[in-house]
Design a protein around this nucleic acid. Structure first.
Lengths: 343, 343
DNA sequence: CTGAAAGCGCTTACAG
DNA sequence: CTGAAAGCGCTTACAG
């Protein structure tokens, strides 16, 4: 036999019609068990696999989900945020458990990717994952909406469609960080990370902390806040800028672990001790967090559940089932950088 | 118009045949420019995208590559080796630059994945990436060979088919590590990592170091070597075991950064100073390496070039072009853990 | 330069 | 329980 076997080859060998082969292979109850057995045996022997292109074309589906990972264009492409890589792992697993394939693409926001996947029948839906300026891609989201593309979005809420979003409870995460730093007896707070509508996740983390401080009688206007995207460099620079502004603080909450690690470096370079002089809390619990020096206290996002929920909700949307905004509860992981844990 | 537009819709609106539309959309030189312009305009307006399932079915290709990432089954699935994640990034980019999609799958070696992708026409070829016991998957590689699946393999050589392999020059990497440690005046060496045919990459790193030592008159039998898979835990345990065996050394080369980081922890826990008491060199240059304490001297693998070569060579194989074993030159990155660099 | 037609390998009403 | 037939949306010889 030349080339790959087709269902016609099996039909010929089994002495049945091709329709019957097709039914048998999908285990249709309308096929005699003996016939099935014979067909399965032949299929196995020929190492037959259903041609996905043909079956998808006929069924008008793909059995594939697309993952679009994007970051700030300023970030070096080779240095993908470790948090998203962890998500990638859990998304892959969640997909394969449900018999779906995962198409992966790293995009800059500037690219014109919207809807390509679904329109060209490469995927049944899209998972959007990334940090970056939310306002920048809101327009793209609207295009997706207009084209009725199926998608879910990590973190940011889609205007008018909260049900497309899966995210950590960032507000709660910020509260946990604030409360923990307060418990360490700290009074003068700083926050590094974009705190505007452009970065809704970071903003919620900031607001959560502010909320915790308010309950302890600390006013928001005493908090030093500086914008930063999620890179070590941005964290490093932010510290220098805060110092140049003459800001002083003994508690620092960073919107991501990468920012925190860069910030700690800058603090140490200035001769300040972490946690003695400044207690630091990060966000994400990326693998590096436990290896930084001192080990980083941080708010852990449950990437395993997050990836699962993204896939589950997207599949529901594809199947026209109802979904709603899904929030995942974060957890504080206490290590040395906040002054609470000993080795 | 209901549903997605097809080439027939465009043909109708443009007043030409569907064949002409198909040709025009692929920019065939056999189509009048005016006709093309008209067709492009209509296609754009309808937001038309070629149906990949249909075109792939007809062309009998997929325009997709599959990446199979696997690790030792003992490794927690959520904690994928950062080195492979970096590779994933560069592979994705290399694929999209060449107009290919990338299907990603994380597999345990125990799974029965061989050839599924290509047989079911989901991918034109497979990229294999992972650590793990080489002997364990040799059999699977043979199945792929027998089925004439197109594939390339990172690291390990496929018996009789060196051209399917892309890898770092691990021998050279080992030499660099050995030479560097010698330059620091170290004399008593240890190596942590599997050094057998089952882990050809680690073995070559070990042999490279041994080679460098031999040139300095240090015999292989003075070297303490202990097997370990590529995890921090394995590195941590290995140090304890070496000490239990009464081995003493002032230079340690680890087959991977993760091993090195675990080893450094264990050394420090025993009150030994790195690099003063033991100079440590790792392998990979994963992002954590620069954040460990002390920062890790390591052999950097060029993941950007590696990912590119995997894709380039696989595409060549698919197109029946000749390829040969591709080796990428590693580079030593000197930081604090080896005692050579100051802050 | 353009069109009519075949066919890629399936799935699934329809008929028996 | 099974078969004959249509059709998913393309690409590409073939003919003009």
């Amino acid at each position: 036999m030349k080339g790959k076997a087709t269902s016609f080859d099996i039909a010929y060998l089994a002495g049945v019609s091709q329709s019957t082969v097709s039914r048998a292979l999908r285990d249709s109850p309308a096929v005699n068990q003996e016939t099935k057995d014979k067909i399965f045996a032949i299929a196995k022997q020929l190492n037959y696999k259903v041609d996905k292109n043909a079956s998808n074309l006929r069924k008008q589906t793909t059995g594939t989900l697309a993952l679009l990972l994007f970051e700030d264009p300023t970030v070096d492409e080779s240095q993908i945020n470790p948090f998203f890589l962890a998500m990638l792992g859990s998304i892959t697993r969640a997909c394969s458990q449900r018999g779906h394939d995962l198409l992966v693409s790293f995009q800059q926001l500037s690219n014109d990717w919207h809807a390509d996947y679904e329109d060209s029948k490469k995927a049944d839906g899209i998972i959007l994952l990334g940090y970056g300026d939310y306002k920048d891609y809101e327009e793209k989201l609207n295009t997706l909406l207009a084209q009725q593309t199926h998608f879910v979005c990590w973190g940011a809420e889609v205007q008018g469609h909260p049900e497309f979003t899966i995210r950590s409870n960032n507000l709660q995460g910020g509260k946990l960080a604030g409360q923990h730093l307060l418990q360490q007896g700290r009074k003068r707070f700083a926050f590094i990370g974009n705190a505007s509508d452009n970065s809704p996740e970071f903003l919620a983390r900031y607001q959560g902390m502010v909320h915790a401080l308010a309950q302890a009688g600390i006013a928001e206007n005493t908090v030093a806040q500086l914008d930063a995207i999620s890179t070590e460099q941005a964290g490093f620079d932010a510290i220098n800028q805060l110092h140049a502004q003459g800001k002083s603080f003994d508690a620092l909450f960073c919107a991501s672990d990468l920012i925190a690690i860069g910030a700690i470096r800058a603090l140490q370079k200035k001769g300040l001790k972490v946690p003695e002089d400044v207690a630091v809390v990060g966000f994400d619990d990326i693998p590096v967090a436990s290896f930084s020096s001192p080990a980083l206290t941080t708010i852990q996002q449950n990437t395993s559940l997050a990836g699962e929920m993204l896939v589950v909700n997207l599949l529901k949307l594809i199947n026209h089932q109802a979904v709603e905004l899904t929030e995942i509860q974060p957890k504080i992981i206490i290590r040395q950088s906040s002054g609470a844990a000993e080795r």
